[in-house]
Each structure stands twice: as C-alpha cells, then as structure tokens.
Design a protein around this nucleic acid. Structure first.
Lengths: 193, 193
DNA sequence: TGTACATCAGTGAACGCGCGTTCACTGATGTAC
DNA sequence: TGTACATCAGTGAACGCGCGTTCACTGATGTAC
C-alpha cells in the first residue's frame, strides 16, 4: 500500500523515539523485531528506514539527549532564579533513577556506547557536544570556556551518581548516593547555596 | 581424568578472574564458550563450577572491586602523604580510561549491572559496600559516616567522568573530561590542595 | 474522466549465525579390599 | 602389593531459542497518457 508523502519521515521519527526509550531501558541488545512490534510493525520493514541497527542506535542516543534536555529545561523553568538547582535535583531525583527509559542516555548506556565502533561514537559525540553546549548556559563561570568545563564536571559527576544508584539493590544505599550527590553538587555549583 | 585435590577451586578462581576482565572489556554478553576458550577449556565444563552465567557475572564484578582496589592502593602507597590525590589521579588517568578490562567494574558495567535481577545485584552490593568501606579510610571527614558519604560522592563522580570519557570518540574531549574532573575532585577532597 | 502502470512502505518466511544450557561419555587417579 | 571399582573435571555434540539481515511479494495510491 502506498502511503502519503510525509509518512516515511514520520514513521522514521517514531521508530527513533520508541527505540531510544527501549534502548535506554533494556540496553543496545533490545531486538529490532521487538522495537518494531511496539509500533505494530514487523521487523522486515526496518531496513526501509535504516541501513543497520548501529545507525538506529546512534540516532536513538542522540534523540535521548534532546529528550532529557527538554525535561531538565522544564524543571528549570519552574524555578526561576534557581534553574541550576532545579536541574540538579531533577537529574538526581528518585524519579529519574527509577525511569532510565526517559532519562539521560549516558547514564543508561555509557559503557555500551563506549564499545561501539568509532563512527557510531562520532555521531553520538556531536549530539553530546550540542547538548552540553546548551546546558552550559545554566552553569556559573566567567567565560564560556569555564562554563563548559564546569558543565562537563557537573554532568559527568551526576552521570556516575545516577549510574551507581541504579546498580545497587539496597534502596537505602541508593537514596544515600543520590542525596549525597545532590547536596554536594548544589553546594559546589549553585552560587547562592 | 581426575585432578589433584585443590584443582577445582583453583580453576574456579581462574575462571572468575579471566571472566571479570573479559566482562569489563566486552560487557556481560561475552559468551561462556569464549571465556572458557581463553583458558583452553571448553564450554561444557563451565557448569561444573557455576550454576549459571548470572552467578559468574556477580562473582566477576565482585572480583573487579578487589582488583581495582589493589591497583589504587598501590598508587596510594607510592605517594605517602598524598594518598587520596594519587587515587584520584590513578582513577581518572588516561591509562584507566583506555583499559576498562583491568579497571573499575561500575564504570565498565554500571548500566548492565542495573539491569540484572535483584538477587544478582544484592550479591554485587555486598562487594561494593565492602570496597567503599575500605576506600573510605583515605577520605577526609570527622566521623566515619562522613567519610563514607564523601567516598560515595567522590567515587560516583569519578565513575561518571570515566564512563563519559570512554563513550566519546574525540580524544580532546575525552582528555578535557578527565582533566577537569581530576582538578575538581582534588580541589574538593584533598585537604592541602 | 478513465485506464494501465509504477511506486515503495510494509509483510513474513528464510538464512546463517551465536548462545546458554544439558547430557552421555572419557579417562587419570584415588580408594576399598 | 595388586586389582576392581568409584570419582568427577572436562569434552563436544545437541537442543532450543533469539537475532540481524535479506528478499520476493503485496497492494493502495500516485502518475502518465
């Protein structure tokens, strides 16, 4: 059956968005047939949209940066004057910890990204740089360079806290990790305590 | 062929140690046949030592904590009076970044650990708590509780920096992440700057 | 306006491969007598 | 001391399953005339 003109592009976007969440939840090994099935499609059609699973993975990770940025941006907008504090509290929240599917792609997939071929990582790099460049507006620092350095320190630190919190089984320990990191980074990066 | 009395236990330890490194390099999905092959064994014998791949994985991760602690302890011992600085510089070194197989298991496998069944994570928890308890001796803090809180903040932060550095393709960015984190954590946690 | 043909997103079977786990078997050495 | 048997770490074939990718086919709609 032939589809309307924009159909293909929209389907492709749907696949990327859905895959992005499923990869973040289950890892890169989530099967293509599974991903397509969630959209009521069969696996055969996948290759009308992507050359390989690798290509989808790279785009899915890139999409994840946009999604988390929208979330953190929303949290920031709700606390004018305390934007960075809101971002830190949002990122290190129990809610983010419990929902990797809708959260930060580095915290959810970091080591798996690290194992991809260079070309895949290069594609992800661009999205990541773009993401952090945009996030840097919220950080303190006299020059843009300094703000970007601070951004990398803060976000890499939060990635680790979230990743470690998710990997422990004990809920008290999980909470301790998140809370300790929240307090520490707010003190370290939010100008007025 | 029947083997000497201690043979079985030694073989088991060899498997755990080898698997630990291979999992850290390639992820949990590294095949049992592959792991056994590295030790010139065939896959069939695996189940004389372990009930499942899951069991091996948990022990392999636990073993990883001991290995990295020995490494960091060695680095600390070489710089008396600057132990913590040596640990931070060792953990956030290019060398550690380039060699996940012999490095921190959380940085190498965090998200994959997070996806394991609770029982597996519980086993890993014990090893992790033990690890951080021992590392806490190096951290500043008036009470033991405070030192342990600081330990979690510092190490989770370093986990994220290492994990993020490994996932980027650009070497300059990778270096920036590591260097920024090194400077920041040394300033934040090493008493005499 | 009507007809014949082209298009192409999507289908589902098939290919080829890898993997976790099981199991009957091996055979050198330990043990019972 | 010698013999028959038990042990059990390790072997390698097999089972059952899942997965990435390919491919011939479908069929509703767009296009040429």
């Amino acid at each position: 059956m032939r589809y309307p003109a924009e159909h293909k592009q929209k389907q492709r976007e749907r696949i990327v968005q859905s895959a992005s969440r499923h990869f973040r939840r289950g890892g890169r090994q989530v099967a293509i047939a599974n991903l397509m099935g969630k959209l009521n499609l069969t696996h055969g059609g996948f290759y009308r949209h992507f050359a390989s699973k690798e290509e989808l993975f790279a785009e899915a990770v890139a999409h994840g940066f946009e999604e988390i940025r929208a979330k953190l941006g929303g949290a920031a907008a709700q606390q004018p004057g305390q934007e960075l504090k809101a971002v830190i509290e949002g990122y290190l929240s129990l809610e983010h910890c419990a929902n990797p599917a809708e959260g930060c792609p580095v915290a959810a997939l970091g080591p798996e990204i690290a194992r991809q071929r260079r070309s895949v990582r290069a594609k992800i790099d661009r999205a990541m740089r773009d993401h952090f460049k945009k996030m840097a507006d919220l950080l303190p620092g006299a020059t843009e360079k300094e703000r970007e350095r601070n951004t990398l320190v803060l976000f890499s630190g939060m990635v680790g806290a979230l990743s470690m919190a998710r990997s422990v089984a004990d809920e008290d320990l999980q909470q301790s990790i998140l809370q300790g990191a929240r307090e520490f980074y707010i003190k370290a990066f939010c100008p007025q305590g």
